[in-house]
Simulated scan of single mutants.
Amino acid sequence: MTDLGYHVSHEQFAPSAALEYAELADEVGFEHALASDHFHPWSERQGESGLVWSWLGSALEATDLTFGTVNAPGYRYHPAIIAQGAATLREMYPERFWLAVGSGQLLNEGITGTDWPVKRERNARLEECADVMGRLWDGEEVTHHGRIDVEQAQLYSRPDTAPPLIGAALSEETAAWLAEWADGMITIATPDHEADAARVEAFRENAPEKPVFLKAQHAYADSDEAALEGAYEQWHTNCVPGPVTQELRTPEQFDELSETVDEEQVAENVRCSAALEDHIEWLEHDASLDVERVFIHNVPTNQTDFLEAFGEDVLPALE
């Protein structure tokens, strides 16, 4: 069975507004949420970027949702601090917080002045960080010297069960690698359903019992034109093809590079429609991948309309 979750986009909404949307998501029937962890927005048009770690405690207290966030430890965040933060949230709200980790993007991690490594090196650093966090959650005193340094760190406040550590993947190669050490995988729904299925299969071949989560970009509005317009205005910077976006440092650079992206390209990457039947069909297609959760990101800013409509018609249709 595939559960549906709500994606909270901190790049698009002030933290106070994001909390109101999370509360509404809870009210209309969502059970899970995914919150982004950014220092910068993707575009100057979005114009927000609250600290998710300050926000998560309020969100967990105000709702009954489970929450996860995708983090890139080892750059602007030391893995021991992330392990401590995740342990604290899960101790306060048992079984409701999980952590996803990825190799990161310069847009967020570059603020520390780091020399941005190639993907292979970022993956190696990520695996080191994951190992350190797991050992801390197990109660070990950890000393580690490598790509990251830890000296006699030990967590004294720990939950009964460690936060599941979910790895983020955008390729089959990364998916297969994550299966070796992560507790699950989160990936992105793309226009290429066969590629999505291949990514899931690459993970499941080596970890058949571990969960897979999917994040899907949707655009719902009262007309198809409004849905596409809202998607273009908020998300065309994320429709630049290829891995180049991992190397951009500022929202201005994303805006400049995306000047050549047109509405047709956005429509290929974001599921734009005013018809709830279309959104149901897309989500049923996602469920056919045998994933445990799909987190829906309504890309336009009309979150209230989206949440009320999906709560009334889409969630019941997919139960």
Rank of each mutant, 00 (worst) to 15 (best):
M1F: 06
A227R: 12
T260N: 14
E268M: 08
R147K: 06
D224P: 07
D255Y: 11
N302G: 04
H10D: 04
L4M: 12
G29A: 11
A267T: 05
V101E: 06
H78T: 05
D222M: 08
Y21A: 09
E151F: 12
Q217M: 13
F67L: 14
S43P: 02
F310T: 02
A198W: 11
V212F: 11
P94R: 06
A153K: 07
A231K: 09
T237D: 04
Q84F: 01
T143Q: 07
V261Y: 02
C272P: 12
K215A: 13
E95S: 14
Q246Y: 12
A195S: 14
S9K: 01
H218W: 10
V101P: 01
E95T: 13
R76N: 06
S9A: 14
E48C: 15
P94C: 09
E141N: 06
L65P: 06
Q303E: 15
H297M: 14
L257R: 15
V28S: 10
Q234N: 15
D196Q: 10
D115S: 04
A198M: 09
F306V: 02
G74F: 00
E201G: 01
S16Y: 03
G85F: 07
V70I: 15
E284H: 05
T187Q: 08
E225S: 15
V132A: 01
G139M: 08
T260L: 05
A207L: 12
A176Y: 12
P211F: 04
E233T: 15
A175V: 07
W116Q: 01
H78A: 13
L248Q: 11
A153P: 08
H40F: 14
G85S: 15
T88Q: 12
V101G: 06
F30L: 12
E256T: 09
V200S: 09
D149T: 12
A62T: 00
P208S: 12
L178T: 02
V118L: 14
E277R: 09
A221K: 09
M92A: 13
R147D: 03
G110H: 05
Q234P: 00
A62F: 02
G242N: 06
Y21E: 12
S54G: 11
F203M: 09
Y156W: 14
